[in-house]
Simulated assay, not measured.
Amino acid sequence: SKDFNNDEYSLCTVQSIPYLGPIYGGLREGVSIYIQGSIPEDITRFFLNLLCGESESSDIALHFNPRFDGWDKVVFNSCEEGSWGSEDKTRDMPFSKGEAFEMVIVIKVNGNDFYTFQHRLPLERVRAMQIAGDVCIQTINVIGVRLPEHEALGSMLWALGFGLWALGFGPVPYSNMIPGGMYPKRTLIIRGMLPYGAERLCINFMVSRSRDIAFHMNPRVREGVVVRNSMIGGNWGQEDRELSMNPFSEGQYFDMSIRCGSERFKVFVNGQHLFDFFHRLQSFNEIDMLEIEGDVQISYIHF
Results as ranks from 00 to 15, higher is better:
residue 87 E to N: 13
residue 87 E to M: 09
residue 87 E to D: 13
residue 89 K to T: 11
residue 89 K to E: 08
residue 92 D to T: 13
residue 93 M to G: 07
residue 95 F to M: 10
residue 97 K to D: 06
residue 98 G to A: 11
residue 99 E to R: 15
residue 99 E to H: 15
residue 101 F to C: 08
residue 101 F to Y: 11
residue 102 E to W: 11
residue 102 E to L: 11
residue 106 V to Q: 08
residue 106 V to F: 04
residue 107 I to D: 06
residue 108 K to C: 09
residue 108 K to S: 11
residue 110 N to T: 02
residue 110 N to H: 02
residue 110 N to E: 03
residue 110 N to S: 04
residue 111 G to R: 01
residue 114 F to H: 09
residue 114 F to E: 06
residue 114 F to D: 04
residue 115 Y to F: 15
residue 115 Y to I: 14
residue 117 F to K: 08
residue 118 Q to V: 13
residue 118 Q to M: 10
residue 119 H to P: 09
residue 119 H to N: 14
residue 121 L to N: 04
residue 121 L to C: 08
residue 123 L to W: 04
residue 123 L to I: 14
residue 123 L to F: 09
residue 124 E to D: 15
residue 125 R to T: 08
residue 125 R to Q: 06
residue 125 R to P: 03
residue 125 R to F: 03
residue 126 V to M: 05
residue 127 R to C: 08
residue 128 A to P: 08
residue 128 A to M: 02
residue 129 M to N: 01
residue 130 Q to M: 07
residue 132 A to K: 15
residue 133 G to F: 09
residue 133 G to I: 14
residue 134 D to Q: 09
residue 134 D to C: 10
residue 135 V to H: 00
residue 135 V to F: 00
residue 136 C to D: 11
residue 137 I to N: 03
residue 140 I to Q: 05
residue 140 I to N: 06
residue 141 N to K: 08
residue 142 V to S: 02
residue 143 I to G: 02
residue 143 I to C: 07
residue 143 I to K: 11
residue 144 G to H: 00
residue 144 G to Y: 00
residue 146 R to K: 07
residue 148 P to A: 10
residue 148 P to K: 06
residue 150 H to Y: 05
residue 151 E to R: 00
residue 152 A to E: 10
residue 153 L to Y: 11
residue 153 L to H: 12
residue 156 M to F: 12
residue 157 L to E: 10
residue 157 L to T: 11
residue 158 W to G: 03
residue 159 A to T: 01
residue 159 A to S: 05
residue 159 A to D: 04
residue 160 L to Y: 01
residue 161 G to A: 06
residue 162 F to G: 01
residue 163 G to H: 13
residue 166 A to Y: 04
residue 167 L to I: 04
residue 168 G to D: 11
residue 171 P to H: 05
residue 171 P to W: 00
residue 172 V to G: 11
residue 177 M to K: 15
residue 178 I to F: 10
residue 179 P to W: 05
residue 179 P to K: 15
residue 181 G to A: 09
residue 182 M to F: 04
residue 184 P to V: 03
residue 185 K to E: 15
residue 187 T to Q: 02
residue 188 L to D: 12
residue 188 L to Q: 04
residue 190 I to A: 03
residue 191 R to P: 09
residue 192 G to M: 07
residue 192 G to Q: 07
residue 193 M to G: 10
residue 194 L to I: 14
residue 196 Y to W: 03
